[in-house]
Computed example of a mutant assay.
Amino acid sequence: MSTHDMVVNNPVALGEQAPDFTLDSTQGPVTLSDLVSRAPKGVVVYFYPKAATPGCTKEACDFRDSLNTFASAGYLVVGVSPDGIPALERFAQNEGLNFPLASDPDKAVMERWGAWGEKKNYGRVVTGTIRSTFVVDPAGVVVLVQRGVKATGHVARLRRDLGIDSQ
């Protein structure tokens, strides 16, 4: 049994229309449909537990360091967590994050996407953020789903899975 097994009820699934959302972010209000309309290949939506924690910092900095590569390949990136805007703004400033970090304090978007719920963490069942990444294509369809990912190495695997490094 994995230390990060999870239970998700009616999560967003591969091949379905991505549920739209509008959230406050470090770059003003962000709406998925607006991002999708501006992304030639798609939008990477990643959900993470808490700003400025070691794993989330590693993942965010990996996205920061790869942002030009994602952009050159036609992808935009947005991170979503339950943190409030002040915490996200500090995180973005301290780490030089160059993409929007969106705040979902009531966890409604996270729940709808299957990124909030019960998960097993080191043998205990807890409720929390299920570190997850989705890619939404220009038609608004979910074309990649990765749930329960590990922060370290995740961005490199995502780049590989999207074929970005072979372009």
Score class of each variant (00 low, 15 high):
residue 149 V to G: 08
residue 154 H to K: 10
residue 115 A to M: 01
residue 152 T to R: 03
residue 72 S to R: 09
residue 108 A to Q: 11
residue 113 W to R: 08
residue 35 L to K: 13
residue 140 G to I: 00
residue 137 D to A: 08
residue 119 K to D: 01
residue 81 S to E: 14
residue 90 R to D: 15
residue 88 L to H: 14
residue 57 T to Q: 04
residue 25 S to P: 09
residue 64 R to D: 12
residue 37 S to I: 14
residue 105 P to Q: 09
residue 74 G to L: 05
residue 30 V to Y: 03
residue 76 L to R: 05
residue 88 L to Q: 14
residue 81 S to W: 10
residue 126 V to W: 04
residue 135 V to K: 13
residue 122 Y to M: 10
residue 14 L to K: 07
residue 130 I to H: 06
residue 13 A to E: 15
residue 122 Y to V: 08
residue 22 T to C: 05
residue 107 K to G: 04
residue 126 V to A: 03
residue 67 L to Y: 12
residue 131 R to V: 10
residue 62 D to Q: 04
residue 102 A to M: 12
residue 131 R to S: 11
residue 153 G to W: 12
residue 7 V to D: 14
residue 131 R to E: 08
residue 31 T to K: 11
residue 6 M to Q: 06
residue 13 A to T: 15
residue 35 L to N: 11
residue 129 T to K: 01
residue 46 Y to T: 03
residue 125 V to Q: 08
residue 50 K to A: 11
residue 27 Q to V: 06
residue 23 L to P: 05
residue 107 K to H: 12
residue 59 E to V: 13
residue 114 G to C: 01
residue 76 L to Y: 03
residue 14 L to D: 02
residue 61 C to L: 03
residue 98 N to I: 10
residue 31 T to C: 09
residue 152 T to M: 02
residue 34 D to T: 15
residue 53 T to N: 09
residue 149 V to Q: 07
residue 135 V to W: 15
residue 30 V to A: 11
residue 28 G to W: 12
residue 82 P to A: 08
residue 128 G to T: 04
residue 117 G to I: 01
residue 51 A to L: 04
residue 141 V to C: 00
residue 98 N to Q: 14
residue 141 V to D: 00
residue 84 G to F: 14
residue 46 Y to G: 02
residue 57 T to Y: 03
residue 68 N to F: 02
residue 123 G to M: 01
residue 110 M to T: 02
residue 47 F to N: 13
residue 69 T to I: 09
residue 123 G to R: 02
residue 153 G to Y: 08
residue 73 A to W: 00
residue 115 A to T: 00
residue 116 W to I: 05
residue 125 V to E: 09
residue 37 S to E: 15
residue 103 S to D: 07
residue 128 G to P: 07
residue 137 D to W: 02
residue 74 G to D: 09
residue 73 A to R: 01
residue 75 Y to D: 13
residue 13 A to W: 06
residue 35 L to E: 14
residue 153 G to P: 04
